[in-house]
Design a protein around this nucleic acid. Structure first.
Length: 437
RNA sequence: GUGCCUAUGGUGUAAUGGUAACACUGGAGUUUGUGGUACUCUCGACACGGGUUCGAUUCCCGUUAGGCACCCCA
């Protein structure tokens, strides 16, 4: 007994360290993955630029209000927001999405007063307290494109879809398909919902528990259920695309025609709905086909003409969508499309002796200033280990400086591929290196 | 939030009721001024807490994290 206690105490003392772990569902992005992230960010910037979207950054914290006003009845807002303890009285949350904050900024800064529509894009982290899974995190990053203001021309829906589609293409992701649906507007959706509820009313005892809940709160979600009997019942349920008003019907039709002309592959998904309440009209998601391992959507979006009013602004036509960066990167890895070239050093510095090391520091600066990427392992002293390091760094040339060379004011240039070495005057080293690269 | 599965060095894997093996990686070296192959040496782990036991990395419970499904979503 005593023995055990003592032992545990010793063990405890030895292990008296904090258990360091990133919070659940939140990950470090390590150097090995940064190339992919860099690629994703660069591509987003490139696409944004070519489609004339301007960058906007909004705070990571927002007052809870703006989400609560725009997402009543949605899980994202009701169950998944992170509240931040702060000194003031305002209730702050980590943003669970970016569309509402951007609309907030649009209203707050009077962006409706400049030429419309205004095209905005963003890249940043968002936070949702949900159960992590592959492709699902509590902190994830989205890049999104929003078109605010102007009229509700279907061409803008098309551009929103096209921009995100081209971004995925730019990331070399293959087998893309857009899924599209329309969820109607204020004039046709209520009538449809009524019809849907009528259909389900006498089937209450057949559908699952969740669906009975949905029946009351969010009837559109009835169409999302994967429960076996629910799926059967769903098959005969009225579909919203059959009951759209003329305006919504024509709007959707126009978008589809544009997509046809652009040869963007799409399929109608009459069961597609959105997680947030402010959407109307066409909604879309983008998937990759064929991979059973990846069954999540990479992009989601739609039209949200009611959002501005919900936030207390005037009616503003708007459409947009976002791409999940983690998911896109996951697919890039899965499809092995990484083929990204690291910017590797061209020249490696090797020293023998203290004098040479000092001198090498100067040469390091000279080369660096003249735009040559140079690496070293100043902390190692043996020639062998330094050359080994040069090899691992994939250097093209290695500059070897020993005592003899310091004395003679020369330096050895070694071609790492051929092994050929030449001795050159040290004051011409930059030119000599450039000549050989 | 619910259910099921998992947890051993940095990575990928072993084995065991008596404190852990292998490979890769990292570090040092193979007579000291020459890398990429080979060889030698070396650093490095039983997620955390509790219980059963003479003794737990191993069995049990809890926590945490990861995976999968549901919910939902990018």
């Amino acid at each position: 007994m005593i023995k055990k206690k003592t032992k545990k105490l010793i063990k405890k003392k030895a292990k008296e360290r904090v258990i360091l772990q990133s919070p659940k569902g939140m990950r470090d992005i390590l150097p090995v993955d940064q190339l992919l992230w860099e690629k994703a960010r660069k591509s987003a910037n490139k696409i944004a630029d070519s489609f004339n979207f301007s960058r906007i950054d909004t705070p990571i914290l927002e007052t809870a209000d703006i989400f609560e006003r725009t997402g009543t009845g949605t899980d994202i807002v009701e169950k998944q927001m992170y509240f931040v303890k702060s000194r003031g009285e305002s209730r702050l949350v980590l943003r669970p999405e970016c569309t509402a904050p951007i609309m907030r900024a649009y209203i707050q800064h009077g962006l409706s007063k400049i030429s419309q529509p205004i095209k905005l894009f963003y890249i940043g982290p968002i936070f949702r307290h949900e159960q992590p899974q592959s492709g699902r995190f509590r902190q994830h990053h989205q890049v999104g494109f929003e078109i605010l203001g102007g009229n509700s021309d279907p061409i803008y829906d098309t551009i929103a879809i096209l921009t995100l589609f081209r971004l995925l293409e730019e990331l070399k992701i293959k087998n893309l398909i857009v899924q599209i649906n329309s969820i109607g507007c204020k004039s046709c959706r209520p009538a449809y919902v009524k019809k849907l509820q009528e259909y389900y009313r006498n089937k209450q005892n057949k559908i699952c528990k969740d669906c009975r809940q949905r029946f009351l709160v969010r009837p559109l979600r009835l169409l999302d259920c994967k429960n076996e009997t629910c799926v059967q019942i769903k098959a005969d349920a009225p579909l919203i695309i059959d009951r759209l008003c003329n305006s919504c019907k024509n709007h959707l039709k126009a978008v589809l025609e544009h997509l046809d002309e652009l040869k963007v592959p799409y399929s109608m998904n009459p069961y597609l709905v959105r997680g947030l309440d402010y959407y109307n009209g066409p909604v879309f998601e983008i998937f990759t086909e064929q991979s059973s391992e990846i069954n999540f959507s990479l992009v989601g979006g739609g039209r949200y003409d009611y959002l501005a009013e919900m936030l207390g602004g005037v009616k503003t036509f708007a459409v947009g969508g976002g791409m999940g960066m983690e998911r896109a990167i996951e697919v890039m890895k899965f499809q092995q499309l990484s083929g990204l070239a690291k910017n590797e050093p061209k020249v490696f510095l090797v020293h023998i002796g203290e004098e040479a090391k000092k001198k090498n520091l100067i040469i390091f600066e000279e080369l660096r200033k003249s735009g040559i990427k140079v690496s070293e392992s100043f902390g190692k002293d043996s020639l062998k280990s330094q050359l080994r390091a040069a090899d691992k760094a994939n250097a093209i040339l290695t500059l070897i400086l020993g005592q003899k060379e310091v004395f003679e004011e020369t330096i050895i240039i070694r071609n790492m591929k051929t092994g050929v070495q030449e001795t050159v005057p040290i004051n011409k080293v930059v030119d000599e290196v450039k000549k050989r690269l």
